Simulated scan of single mutants.
Amino acid sequence: MTTTIKISLLTLTTLCFLACNAKNNKHTENLAFNNSNKVTNTITASKPEKRYIKVALLLDTSNSMDGLIDQAKAQLWEIVNELSYAKCKDDKPNLEIALYEYGNDNLNAEEGYIRQVLAFSDDLDEISKELFSLTTKGGNEYCGYVIDTALNQLEWNDSKDDLKFIFIAGNEPFTQGKVNYKDASKRAHNKDITVNTIFCGDYNQGISGSWKDGADLAHGDYMSINHNKETVYIATPYDDAILKQNSKLNKTYIAYGNQGRQKIQLQAEQDDNAQGYSNANAVSRTVSKSSHLYKNSSWDLVDASKDKEFKYEKLNKNELPQELKHKTTLEIKTYVANKKAEREAIQNEIQELNNKRKEYILKANKENSNGLENAMIKAIKSQAKAKNYTWK
C-alpha cells in the first residue's frame, strides 16, 4: 500500500472517530440537560404556593350594633387563634383580614354608606386598632352594595387552594339598597368566594329578611346571634403564666426603619386594648402573638431576617435602634440571632401553656357560646373541609 493511500485511510478513520465521539458527547450533553430540566421541573412542581385564608368582615355600624362591634373587639384574638391551628396537608396557611363598615350615617351617602376600613392585611395589630376605632351611628344598611364593593375593591387570589370568605353581620332586611343582593351573592360564588350571613336577632326574622337566601346563593352558612350578649371568658390556672411570657416576648422585638417606633407603640396599645376587656382576652392575644400568623417583618429585625430578600448589608445604620447603630454587620447578625432564639423559646412555652389552657376550657365549657366567634369558626371549619383543610 502506498504512503498516500495509508495517510488517506488514517485521516478518514480519525474523522469518523471524531464525528462518532462528538455525537456521543452531544447525546450525553442533551441527556444531562434534559435530566437537569426534569429535576428543576420536579422541584418546582413539588413546591406548592403558600395558601391563604382570606376573611372579609363586613360589620353593620348603625345605632343598634354596639353589641356586635363589642363582640368583634372582644373575640378577635380567639378567632385568630382558631385559624392559626388550620393546616392543609403539611402547610400552615397565612391569614389576611379585611374590614368594612356599612349602615353608618357618618359615611358617604353617594357610596352607599360604606367604608373600607382596612384592605386585606396580615398585620394583626393594625386590624385590632381599626376594630377599636369603630363607632356606631344611623343608618341605612345596604347588604348587596357592601358585598359588591368588597368583591370589587379587594385583591382576591385566583388560587383554588385558598379559603375565601365574606362574613356580613347586621340586623336590617338583606334586600335594601340599589345593588341586588342576589346578583352580589352569585358574583361571589362565581369567584369562589363564600358569603356567610350573620343576622343579629331572631333566626326566623333573619330568614324572612332574606339573610339565609343571601348565604344560600353563595353556598355559605346563615346564622343568627344575640349580638348584645356579653363575651364569656373562662379563666384558667395558666393565664398568669402566659401573661408573664407576653412581657418577655415583647422584649425580643427589635424595632427599625421609619415605622419601628410607631409600630412597637401600636403593639403595646393593642396589648392594653385586649387587657381592657379581661385577663382572658389578653391571654388570647398573647397566644396569637406566639403563632405563625403574628408577623412584623416591616418593622422588626427578627421577623425581617426570616425573609429571603433580607440583606444585613443593606441596613441603614441610622434606622437601627441605638444599641445597634455602632455595631458591625457580624455583631448585628449575632444580636438578632440571639433574640430570635429567645423569642422561639418563649413562643414554644406559650404554646405549651396554651395546650393545657385549651384542655381546661374544653372541660369547663364544652360548647363555645360566644356569638360572633362561634358563628365564624363553625362556618369556616365546615367549609374548609371541601379543600382538605384540617384543624390540629
Rank of each mutant, 00 (worst) to 15 (best):
A184V: 08
G112N: 05
L163P: 09
F167K: 05
Y142G: 00
I166H: 10
N108I: 00
F167Y: 03
L124D: 05
V179R: 06
Q153A: 10
L151R: 07
A184Y: 10
C88Q: 10
I147Q: 06
G139F: 11
K129F: 04
K89V: 02
E111D: 15
N152K: 11
K137Q: 08
N106T: 02
E172I: 00
Y85F: 15
N108M: 01
E101N: 04
L118W: 07
A150C: 10
N180Q: 11
F165M: 13
S133V: 01
Y145I: 04
N171F: 04
D158I: 04
D91R: 09
I166M: 13
Y100A: 00
N94S: 15
A150Y: 14
G112H: 00
Q116I: 01
A109P: 12
Y113K: 07
Q116Y: 06
L151T: 02
D123I: 01
I127M: 10
L131N: 02
G138E: 14
E101F: 01
D158N: 11
G103T: 04
G144A: 03
S121T: 03
D125L: 14
K87V: 09
A150L: 15
Y102A: 12
Y100M: 00
Y142D: 00
N106P: 01
A184W: 10
C143E: 06
F165R: 13
L99N: 05
Y181E: 15
E126M: 05
A184M: 11
F167N: 01
K129S: 07
A119N: 15
F174E: 10
N106V: 01
D91Q: 09
N106W: 02
D91M: 11
I147Y: 06
D122C: 15
C88M: 08
D123T: 01
T136G: 13
